[in-house]
């Protein structure tokens, strides 16, 4: 699990996408948006709620993509940032009467700071040791949230009950639908931000550090700064997701943010494809729906069914849904090329 052996497929080497790929991506995005906007008008409100949650997980997974896929650091502790984000929003709303919309950026900033600070000692750790440190964070978080020291704010084991905001401006949609659209908009915005980060100088520095830290240092990249920044930014994404989830579920409690959540996010990251930001959505859907599917197959053996599905997914898509999609896209494009005028 040493950092170097996280083998990544070589998007960095693949060069710029061709014109065809770009136009495909454009049409794909348009189609996705059309479907995404239409969906809540055709589905039961519970399903709308579930899709909202899936998108929220996807946002958190984007944070992991930046950290793991792009920067090559490893975290089993993102449930903690998710929890910090959720509690930041909850405490602000519950104790200080802050509007829900304002809690989102605050949760992001708070998590950025926590992530950055956590990234500092984590700098000294690599691979497996970093995994353990983040893992410790994940284990510690529910205990800290339960602690009587903070009970005054956090409500201890009881947690905090929240209220969903209604649609503003008298829009004729339910609060579930409103939250769905809000999450969709925030998710898209954050996804675009993340893609811009990846394609920027900063992104190239992060990738360089992942692929060859020694060479990166030789090129004058400040490794410590970028690695802690990556941790901070990753926590920011996950924190915003956490804040959204608190409101979507209308309840925060310490045991919602256990190691299981960290594992869930991690699984979502890998089945989606560690390097792909769009694939985070697939990850989010997987995290939310596959356990339900497993349970519907067999109540008693739900865990086992889930495990088997997971193994099959890994066998069939070793580089995640994104890898599979790329493979299919390459094949299709190849064919198109051969038939084409050239």
């Amino acid at each position: 699990m040493a950092q170097q052996d996280i083998s990544f497929s070589d998007t960095a080497v693949r060069g710029l996408p061709s014109v065809e790929q770009n136009s495909w991506a454009l049409w794909g995005t348009v189609l996705f948006l059309a479907v995404a906007i239409a969906l809540p008008f055709f589905l039961r409100s519970f399903v709308v709620f579930q899709l909202t949650l899936a998108m929220i997980y996807a946002i958190a997974i984007i944070g992991l993509v930046l950290l793991t896929g792009i920067n090559g650091q490893f975290s089993l502790g993102h449930s903690a940032f998710f929890g910090i984000g959720a509690y930041t929003a909850a405490v602000l709303m519950d104790q200080f009467g802050v509007s829900f919309y304002w809690t989102l950026p605050v949760a992001g900033v708070v998590c950025f700071v926590f992530g950055f600070l956590f990234g500092l000692p984590a700098l000294r750790l690599e691979g497996i040791y970093l995994a353990l440190a983040t893992f410790a964070l994940a284990i510690a978080m529910p205990q800290i949230l339960k602690s009587s020291l903070f009970e005054h704010w956090t409500g201890g084991v009881q947690g905090i009950v929240l209220i969903k905001p209604d649609a503003p401006f008298g829009l004729p949609i339910s609060s579930d639908q409103w939250l769905y659209f809000l999450t969709l908009a925030i998710g898209l915005m954050l996804a675009v931000c993340a893609m811009n980060i990846v394609n920027s100088r900063t992104g190239r520095a992060l990738i360089a550090i992942r692929d060859n830290p020694i060479a990166a240092r030789a090129m004058g990249i400040d490794i410590s700064l970028y690695k802690t920044l990556a941790f901070g930014v990753s926590a920011l994404f996950t924190g915003i997701a956490g804040a959204l989830s608190g409101v979507a579920i209308q309840f925060v409690a310490p045991d919602s943010f256990t190691f299981n959540l960290a594992i869930g996010l991690f699984v979502g990251l890998v089945v989606g494809g560690v390097q792909s930001i769009p694939a985070a959505l697939f990850g989010g859907l997987f995290v939310l729906f596959v356990p339900n599917i497993a349970e519907s197959v067999s109540k008693g053996l739900a865990g086992a069914v889930y495990g088997v599905i997971l193994i099959l997914v890994i066998y069939m898509m070793p580089s995640g849904a994104a890898g599979l999609a790329r493979l299919v896209a390459d094949k299709v494009l190849m064919k198109a090329h051969r038939k084409g005028p050239r």
């Binding site: 083998s7 594992i263 991690f266 089945v271 865990g303 086992a304 495990g307 088997v308 890994i314 070793p318």
Partner: peptide, 15 residues
């Protein structure tokens, strides 16, 4: 990749 291994370990855990 290592990450796939970890997911399979998680799956074994669940099973």
């Amino acid at each position: 990749p290592v990450l796939s291994h970890i997911v399979v370990f998680i799956a074994l855990f669940a099973i």
